[in-house]
């Protein structure tokens, strides 16, 4: 089979290049996840705040993120933040050279914003579904705000938010393919390079698709197990 030869590891095959691309894809997703989650919690906290301004900011942010194509967000961050940083650097130090935002960092920021915008909504829904009496009871026993959040609200919120967050995680994994457009050497771009030199586009893009598919199925299985574990204390009919 000549197809396997193309995918083999070593000098003639592209297996090792694709594997390194896969590593970049996965690390991008794994680094983005905590950043996006943190942003999501902040957005959720802002959107249930009593004051008007935090709520307005959170609403504008989620509406923007959910209305813009992920590709456009990525380009705005990659070019826009790069230009902005350059202006700041030029203003601080007129002799400084041109600074280029690395595509990896741009990818993390853009995907983190997207994840934060969507997960903010999921977490807000979970937050609002909690029983208010528990919070009042905790306040009455003298717990601090941080303790209430960490010991009472967070564990219950995660159970409610898990299905939504799982979907978002799968989406995040799939969206990482977009960073290949801004020349980050992820799985997709490695396949592109391989196609450029071997002229076997179907083989390599099929490999990419199957790899993503396998990753998604694996994580879907993980999420199902997590959900089962999170729901272990819930009585079902």
């Amino acid at each position: 089979m000549e197809w396997f030869e193309y995918l083999s590891f070593g000098k003639n095959g592209w297996g090792d290049e694709l594997a390194s691309g896969l590593g970049i894809t996965l690390s991008l997703a794994l680094i983005t996840l905590p950043i996006g989650l943190f942003l999501g919690f902040s957005v959720a906290a802002a959107s249930v705040a009593k004051k008007t301004y935090p709520r307005l900011i959170a609403f504008t942010f989620t509406t923007m993120i959910r209305g813009l194509p992920e590709l456009l967000t990525l380009f705005i961050i990659y070019h826009g933040v790069g230009l902005l940083l350059n202006k700041i650097i030029k203003w601080l130090n007129p002799d400084a050279g041109f600074f280029e935002l690395s595509p990896f960092v741009a990818g993390i920021i853009a995907l983190g914003l997207v994840f934060g915008g969507y997960s903010g909504e999921v977490l807000r829904g979970a937050w609002q579904a909690l029983d208010k009496g528990q919070r009042e009871a905790a306040l009455a026993t003298g717990m601090s705000q941080l303790q209430i959040f960490r010991l009472i609200e967070l564990p219950q919120m995660l159970r409610l938010a898990l299905p939504g967050l799982g979907n978002l995680w799968i989406n995040l994994l799939k969206d990482t393919a977009l960073v290949s457009v801004i020349a980050l050497n992820d799985l997709m771009r490695m396949a592109n390079i391989a196609v450029g030199s071997t002229k076997k586009p179907f083989l390599f893009f099929l490999t990419v698709c199957l790899t993503y598919w396998a990753i998604c199925i694996f994580f879907e299985w993980c999420i199902a197990r997590l959900e089962k574990r999170a729901n272990r204390g819930i009585r079902t009919s």
Binding site: I170, K174, D175, T176, A177, L178, S180, V181, M188, A191, N192, P201, F202, F205, L206, V208, C209, Y212, W213, C216, I217, E220
Partner: peptide
Amino acid sequence: RGTPLLAQLFL
């Protein structure tokens, strides 16, 4: 649903 749209388009 398990593969990126970009990869499908390229395929």
